[in-house]
Simulated scan of single mutants.
Amino acid sequence: MTTVKSGRLLVVGGYGAVGATVAAALVDWFPGRVVVAGRDAARALRLGGVRVDVTDPDGFRRTLDGLGDVAVVVMCVEPPDAGIAHACFERGVHLVDIGATRRLLDGVAELDGLAAAGGATAVLSVGVAPGLTNLLARRAHEAVGGAERIDLTVLLGAGERHGADAVRWTVEGLAEPATARPLRVELPGHGPRTAYPFPFSDQHTLPRTLGTVQVTTRLCLDSGPLTGTLFALRRAARHPAVRQALTAVLRRVHAGGDGFAVRADARRGDLHAAYALTGRAQSRVTGLVAAYVTRELLTGSLPVGVHHIEGLAALARLPEALAEHGVALQRLGGPPEG
């Protein structure tokens, strides 16, 4: 018989594009236990939730203490540092974090000892990229018996309406210097695409968790012309004024669909294995990944401490679980399985 951990589920940013999906799924699974939180007090209160500001860790502590019985915090917005994680761990509160910034993830990982001492579990790299990319990378890595090189490719739908923070994060990433060359990749449902190096956090996490020396993540959009235009502006985007203007334009332009695809290629010598996932509405699927991880945390036996999603065996089959939500897993090639 499964023992379900008691306590409330605090979904921070629970009225946003990702958070609303998280909250809806968790309400179905754990009725009466979900509390929506966010900086917009009116929106949070309208949903029966509470106001929180992730830039104010002391205020967040007061919120946790006021609610009194929070089991897990699901972070659907990105705080400026690891202060919120610290507030959770010192109270023994579990954390599921969709954050995608390397600096933030590294800061939370440094609190592993505090989390373990308080009996808390934190799961990082939760979403599509990072997240599903990490899980596919591990699968391909194991298929070749330990990869020497992993290439990850992410295609996002230019027609999907992303939140302001997501657009700003993308433009900031565009401004970082490229560390590898573009790559022509076949993506199921989208054909051959040119993808460009992009600073997703998975390429920094996976060398530590998998031991693979060379990991590169590349990005493209479902609109080829928009992809080319965007990356042609990479050098110009180093200037703050250009980034500000580009952010404003991308929030208004929706020239494409809402389909996405991720692909992981692992190579060791002559061995090559590749897996891909395709679906629609990347924000919705990110929310579903976070919800499934939260459910496993509450109903399973995940170890205490801070873990990236690919380091938890109980989450290895998450891509298959998403099939009922229109996410398709494909094995594109590699040595015989099993």
Rank of each mutant, 00 (worst) to 15 (best):
T2W: 01
T3M: 07
V4I: 15
K5C: 02
R8L: 09
L9V: 09
V11P: 06
V12T: 04
G13K: 12
G14H: 13
G14A: 08
G19F: 04
A20S: 15
A24K: 07
L26A: 03
L26G: 05
L26Q: 07
W29V: 14
G32Q: 10
V34N: 11
A37K: 06
D40C: 03
L45T: 09
R46Y: 02
G49A: 13
V50T: 08
D53A: 15
V54T: 15
V54P: 12
R62Q: 15
T63P: 03
G68M: 11
D69R: 13
M75C: 08
C76P: 09
E78S: 10
P80C: 00
G83H: 06
G83N: 02
I84V: 15
H86V: 03
A87W: 01
F89P: 05
F89D: 02
L95I: 04
V96D: 01
D97M: 00
I98S: 15
G99M: 08
G99E: 07
T101W: 06
T101P: 00
R102F: 00
R103S: 12
G107K: 11
E110L: 13
E110I: 01
A116D: 05
A122M: 13
A122P: 05
P130M: 03
G131P: 06
L136N: 09
L136E: 13
A137H: 10
R138E: 11
A140M: 06
G145T: 08
G145S: 10
A147S: 04
E148H: 15
R149L: 04
I150W: 03
L152R: 03
L152Y: 00
V154T: 14
V154S: 10
L156W: 08
E160Q: 14
H162S: 08
A164P: 06
D165Q: 02
D165F: 02
A166Y: 07
W169E: 14
E172A: 15
G173D: 02
L174W: 14
A175P: 10
P177W: 09
R181E: 10
L183H: 14
L187Q: 05
G189A: 06
H190V: 01
P192F: 15
P192L: 13
R193V: 14
R193P: 10
Y196N: 00
Y196M: 00
P199I: 05
S201D: 10
D202R: 01
L206M: 13
R208H: 14
G211E: 02
T217N: 04
C220W: 03
G224M: 00
G224A: 12
G224N: 01
L233T: 03
R234W: 07
R235K: 02
R238Y: 01
P240N: 08
Q244H: 15
L246V: 11
L246D: 06
A248N: 10
R252F: 08
H254T: 15
A255W: 11
G256V: 02
F260Q: 10
F260L: 12
A261M: 11
V262P: 10
A264E: 08
R267P: 04
G269C: 08
G269I: 11
A274T: 11
G279S: 12
R280K: 08
R280Y: 00
A281V: 02
A281M: 06
G287M: 03
V289P: 09
A290L: 12
T294H: 10
H308M: 03
L312I: 05
L312E: 06
A314C: 07
A316G: 07
R317P: 01
L318M: 09
L318Q: 05
E320C: 05
E320F: 01
L322G: 08
Q330W: 00
R331C: 03
G333V: 02
G333L: 03
G334F: 01
P336A: 12
